[in-house]
C-alpha cells in the first residue's frame, strides 16, 4: 500500500535512474533539492514531489511550508525568521510521519572546502536540533553537509551567496510506512 498517489511516485534506487535521466529531478522547482538524494546517489529512495495543492505532498512542504532556512556569513545561528520556518516544518512533519528526513547543510563559496563541509554540518545540525526541540522524532532525521559543493545560485555576489548558505529539509518516503 502506498501513501502517495501511484502516478506521482518515482522511486530511484541509489541514483541509478537519476543517472539515466537526471533532468527529471530538476523539474521540481523549489523542490529540486528533493532530487539531490537520487541524483548524487544518497542511498536514500527518491520520492515524487507530488502536487503542491495536496497538503500531504512533498511539493506542498517544499513550497508552502518552506523547506529551507538561511544563515549569515560563517554563522550557524538560526534567525527568528528561520525559527518560524522550522516551527512550521516541525508541525507539518509531525502530521506527516510517513516521510524520512535528511537535513542538508550548505555553505557559500567564500570559504575553503574542508571548513565549509564542517560549517554546513553545523548548519544542518542547528536546524535538526531545533526540529527535535519542536517535537520531531530524532530517529526520522539525518544530517549531511555538502559544504560548497552544491550551490543553487552561481553569481559572485551576496545575493547568490545568501541563497547558498542554507539548511534544506529534504523528505523521502520511508519512515513510518
Amino acid at each position: 500500500m502506498s501513501l502517495l498517489p501511484k502516478a506521482l511516485l518515482v522511486v530511484a534506487a541509489f541514483g541509478l535512474a537519476a543517472c539515466q535521466n537526471p533532468d527529471r529531478y530538476g523539474a521540481g522547482g523549489a523542490g529540486g533539492a528533493g532530487g539531490n538524494g537520487g541524483m548524487y546517489g544518497s542511498g536514500v529512495g527518491t520520492t515524487g514531489l507530488g502536487d503542491p495543492n495536496d497538503p500531504k505532498s512533498i511539493a506542498y512542504f517544499n513550497q508552502r511550508v518552506g523547506d529551507r532556512v538561511h544563515f549569515a556569513v560563517d554563522q550557524s545561528t538560526l534567525s527568528p525568521e528561520s525559527r518560524t520556518t522550522l516551527q512550521g516544518q516541525a508541525q507539518w512533519l509531525q502530521g506527516n510521519p510517513q516521510y524520512a528526513i535528511i537535513i542538508e547543510g550548505h555553505a557559500d563559496e567564500q570559504g575553503t572546502r574542508e571548513y565549509n563541509l564542517a560549517l554546513g554540518a553545523r548548519r544542518a545540525s542547528a536546524a535538526q536540533d531545533f526540529l527535535i526541540s519542536q517535537g520531531v522524532q530524532p530517529s526520522r532525521m539525518r544530517t549531511v553537509s555538502y559544504g560548497k559543493e552544491r550551490p543553487i545560485a552561481v553569481c559572485a555576489e551576496e545575493a547568490c551567496f545568501a541563497q547558498n548558505r542554507r539548511a534544506v529539509t529534504v523528505l523521502s518516503a520511508g519512515a513510518g510506512s
Binding site: 548524487y40 574542508e114 559543493e149
Partner: peptide
C-alpha cells in the same frame, strides 16, 4: 562522476590514494 569526490591525497610512496566521496550519500 556518479558521486561527488573531494580532495584526493597520495600516500608517501604514491601507491595509494585517500579521498572523500559521497558514494553512500554522506561524505
Amino acid at each position: 562522476s556518479a558521486s561527488i569526490v573531494l580532495a584526493p591525497r597520495f600516500s608517501p610512496t604514491g601507491d595509494r590514494i585517500l579521498f572523500t566521496s559521497y558514494k553512500s550519500g554522506f561524505p
